[in-house]
Design a protein around this nucleic acid. Structure first.
Lengths: 122, 122
DNA sequence: CTGATATTCAACCCTGAGGTTGAACAATGC
DNA sequence: GCATTGTTCAACCTCAGGGTTGAATATCAG
């Protein structure tokens, strides 16, 4: 029994072209379910399920107005993803930078001592 | 038979805490498979499968050195995700901005005409 | 009340994801 | 050659994802 966290659910929700298309459509404004489903080559029910996935990930908010359900895009979870990715890339860059510094230090050391075959591949 | 595109595969690969942890570990530098698997409460085989998912998404590159397989993080696919998200949020902001402009225009119009109760619910 | 429209619920199917275990393969050490 | 280490391959299990169809629910229009 896993307890999927928010990042899991957001990324999972985004990992489907239909759902990304839905979000794209919604970022142009509130839309009814049927209207949203119309362009897709699948049943209304299938789209309804996709919407539930997006709601679970809090990427979509539903507002009921009579028998119509109006959906809107709520971008906050994507900010969280962006933050995770930024952190990840910061790590990565930091490591590359450290590696670079190290290599330069080695070069300087090599320059002041008899050059004895430094194999810096790449 | 769907043909999942790169975004799909990248996001799917990222939508799992084990795999995100693997990437985090790898962003600190190249690591052997066994070493990578050690902290996880699952079989080596399970981790090996996760790695294959990451490779399929091109988030990880494998370099064979003797019997050891050295894995490294390759961030490019995450850049693509970042680009998609930026575009998405640009859309969203643009729409909010347009909405805002519209509302302000209406307010100005309302201020210069007798308010005649148009049922703008909410 | 009746019928049409908007939407979900429920049951089912198929495929793939994530895990297991056991065997196979490849490189190393003696 | 032989045992050991690093890693994958293969078969299997269970469960969730994404789709279908058919029925149920809620609202609106007459």
């Amino acid at each position: 029994m896993r307890a999927p966290n928010h990042l899991d659910q957001t990324l999972l929700a985004l990992a489907d072209p239909t759902r990304r298309a839905i979000l794209q459509r919604l970022s142009a404004g509130e839309t009814r379910v049927t209207e949203l489903a119309e362009p897709f080559a699948m049943s209304l029910n299938a789209v309804s399920k996709h919407i539930r996935v997006l709601e679970r990930a809090r990427l979509v908010h539903r507002r009921r107005e009579g028998r119509e359900h109006l959906l809107s895009f709520t971008p906050k979870p994507m900010d969280d993803v962006a933050r995770w990715m930024d952190a990840q890339r910061a790590n990565w860059s930091a490591r590359l930078q450290a590696l670079d510094d190290l290599l330069q230090a080695e070069d300087r050391a090599a320059a002041s001592t008899p050059p004895d075959k430094k194999g810096r591949t790449r």
